[in-house]
Design a protein around this nucleic acid. Structure first.
Lengths: 188, 188, 188, 188
DNA sequence: TATGAATGAGTCTTCATTCAT
DNA sequence: TATGAATGAAGACTCATTCAT
């Protein structure tokens, strides 16, 4: 509870100011708790970020587990995951910004939660692409590289768009982005 | 001279540690100058970043000016700009990482050099896409959004790849990325 | 408590070295606290000065409130305030020096505590002089200007004398000064 | 020439910002010379202040030498010196402020020029007072102390008044101050 | 004599973290 | 578990002074 209160307060600040410019004092004031309470709930400041990323990663992993056992077409699976990912990001624009911004922060790259987030998700894309290629659903391509490209594309797009506070209008963006990706990989 | 010596030393550190973790002392030691010399050449620490981005933006702008007056097909222009952009990034992986990482740093987003970089370049993509659509070279799409997506795609890809110090092997990545983008926008 | 410990330690240093030459480190060492503790008690270095002046001003203001309601002769009131002011300064020579020296420091003139000190006190003199003139106790004079002159006279005298560490012998000085002022304004 | 150009530029800045907040760079820019040129004309930054005070002291000393040999009444001599001193200060308000402000700056009190200024001038007052007392022109008083009080009175008054940029209207102030001092010491 | 880029010691201030209550 | 005053290392930046030109 306290943990999520702290994390939620942190997300708002992190989205606006970035990790280095968000102080533990700001977080405690925003959460209306004492600074010390942060440290009874988290090992340290980094721990908050780690927790945020891990939580989001866990959600996606759970969804993936279900998705992978479904028997829809592979591109369909990819699309459904994109839908899920996007809908999660749309629920909380600030969180979306944090996930994007801080995942490329070199001073945080050692955190397990961040590593999971930026390594496992593209890895899933790769898995799908490999199968989809074998299946003739997508054109011949380097699945690892393309997986990274897709992940990057989403990441970069969200960053651009969320930065402009327009994620709420995300339906059209989501559509355009899915269309972009589908066209990019689809066999004609 | 001193200005570029300082900027170059900063780039190496910034790529490895990020803006917040790179101190002015580190930069001065790496450049083998006194801390004060940074301040005879730049207004402040941010000024170094601003200069780095502005310099790179200027290069691209100059290339674009020439490119836009050439009479190749629009998609060809896009491809040639991607080639140029990528070849510039490949020349200096550390610089590439800095350009990508710090362009999404909210504490630096107010810098003119960064704003130029992240606003003007997608704007150019948009210009090309509009013309290319009118010309029937690309499928119907939202040019502004797609321009952002393309920019993000490059940005994200470079981040992923340069982060792994594999930009040297960039030829295949570059090919894959160009192929990805071309397929994504091309009319069939 | 801590606040006064810091202020008291600062006074000793400020008297000897002046504001610009007294560092926060010196103050913290002299007060046997950490530098950071200064900043949990004061907004910044200037804040210490502001507090010192405000505190001293408050004492004088409180005394004045009582004095003004007493029904002694006006020149008597002036003399009693001079007695009070002098006795306060004599209690702490270092403080006296700080009050005098830094009240004419242009880099500190914006502080509310200092402005109160150097504006309100002469203002009180003026009030008394106006009444005393109407009453025929003092010769015709410009009350505003004379109030400033009296304030300046005290200020300058304390500076000269405290600078020579002779404030302890202040009784004779105080007598001489009061005699000087009384003669200066008195109707013959 | 250069020396006076530098000193004059310094005076304007020192009056507004005080010694600690006036940098050598500011002075050089205001004088439209290079920083280094300050150091070919003065030993260091303090040297400028020393020169300013010494110059002003020399003027007063020269005037005093003449005055003392004149055979006017002693109080008249005092009045004439006050006239001279005031007229000098009125010529250059900024200089007046510097002389007052920095003469009480503890970090500068070791400068010979300043020591002359604040020790020799009251010493002259004392000389006059001693003679005037012996002569029955002034009431019985402590000449040393009273000399300091007079010096302080002038100093403080100029500070108050020059700080308000009203030294130009100095005629009335000068009159009031002289009247104040005369009344204060005069035998009835 | 004049220049001004370079110097680096020294400033104020911040802030993650601790720990006695 | 929660608190928040205290800590002090570390950071950005300044500025008097120097010296090669």
């Amino acid at each position: 509870m306290k943990k999520d209160l702290i994390a939620d307060s942190a997300i708002v600040l992190l989205a606006e100011k970035g990790y280095a410019n968000t102080t533990t004092r700001m977080i405690s004031e925003s959460a209306e708790i004492a600074v010390g309470t942060i440290y009874t709930n988290f090992k340290n400041k980094e721990g908050i970020l780690d927790y945020i990323f891990q939580t989001e990663y866990d959600k996606r992993e759970a969804y993936l587990k279900v998705l992978l056992t479904s028997n829809s077409a592979y591109l369909e699976k990819l699309n459904r995951f994109l839908d899920f990912h996007f809908s999660e990001l749309s629920k909380n624009e600030k969180l979306a910004l944090v996930l994007i911004q801080e995942s490329s922060n070199p001073e945080l790259s050692h955190l397990a939660g961040i590593q999971n987030f930026i390594q496992q998700i593209p890895d899933f894309f790769k898995t799908i692409l490999v199968e989809a290629m074998a299946n003739g659903e997508v054109r011949p391509l380097d699945p690892e590289l393309t997986a990274e490209i897709i992940f990057s594309t989403i990441r970069g797009t969200v960053l651009n768009v969320a930065g402009k506070n327009a994620l709420s209008d995300s339906e059209s963006i989501q559509k355009e982005l899915k269309s972009f990706i589908t066209h990019a990989v689809q066999k004609r």
